[in-house]
Design a binder for these strands. Sequence first.
DNA 1: TAAAACCCTACCAAATTTGTCAAGTATTAG
DNA 2: CTAATACTTGACAAATTTGGTAGGGTTTTA
Lengths: 144, 144
Amino acid sequence: MMLRLSTKGQYGVRAMYEIAKGYPETPVTIKEISEKQEVSVAYLEQILNKLRKANLIKSIKGPGGGYLLNKSPDQVSIAAILNELEGPVAITSCLNPEEGCVRVDSCVTHLLWKALGEKVEAFLSTITLKTLISGDLYKIKEIS
Amino acid sequence: MMLRLSTKGQYGVRAMYEIAKGYPETPVTIKEISEKQEVSVAYLEQILNKLRKANLIKSIKGPGGGYLLNKSPDQVSIAAILNELEGPVAITSCLNPEEGCVRVDSCVTHLLWKALGEKVEAFLSTITLKTLISGDLYKIKEIS
DNA sequence: TAAAACCCTACCAAATTTGTCAAGTATTAG
DNA sequence: CTAATACTTGACAAATTTGGTAGGGTTTTA
Ligand code: FES
Ligand code: FES
């Protein structure tokens, strides 16, 4: 199966969707997310922890607490969420800023993977949590 | 690193590029591919075997033998190559024809991953071995 | 002060990736 | 005929990634 997204990324987006529904005032607990999206509490903790450290969400402790979006849903792109959970889009490790590649100049495919990555990134940047909430996903063919 | 392509897919495309350069008459040996693309002979054997069974290339045994493209380079898309080596584009396992998902109807993200997969597939279908050989990759932004 | 809720680190099993190895079979040049 | 060339096949294994679980914290508020 080509170009798979890990469950961490998938669950992360679904969790952010639940949190976004509480915006701007109602904290959403991990337990609620866990029940609605059918993902274990322990696994969600890891995921939300990363997103909190990236300032995409904030947490409120104690009874009545939970998670809240830091920005409005239309300002949180899917690309931003996945970027935190899975690192940057990089089809090959040659494109990974941390790794690089010595063959890059003579490589016939380098530009191809780079272009593909950029297209994916551009697409995921146009989709936000608001797109998901408003059910406008069926329109994305027009967005291109 | 998000949406990584396995080395099998990467090496496969690079091997096909070498074979395409011999089109339509000159067989290219595994050894040549191995040297030019810096991939072990044993690993290439596995990869080329798959591509041969998929009828993308044919093999000629014995001295003077090697591999030949079955179709002209402009008729072999990158999508076709990767499809054989890595299976269909499927961002999530829910989109994998062999697996499926029970939550698909109530899932807020299903359409998103589906649309992304289709965009990727469409893009990779427009790029062929001829694109690589002719060095037209810098044009792909215009291709869209 | 007890319950609610988040925080953090360590650990683990299974799957996938990324190959290697060894022993074939088929073809042809000479 | 035969030796060299070149592809064919299947088994196997190390390394990495994935997809979590476990279990103990800490903070807040009713
Ligand atoms: S092998 Fe690294 S850029 Fe192609
Ligand atoms: S969980 Fe399977 S389609 Fe979203």
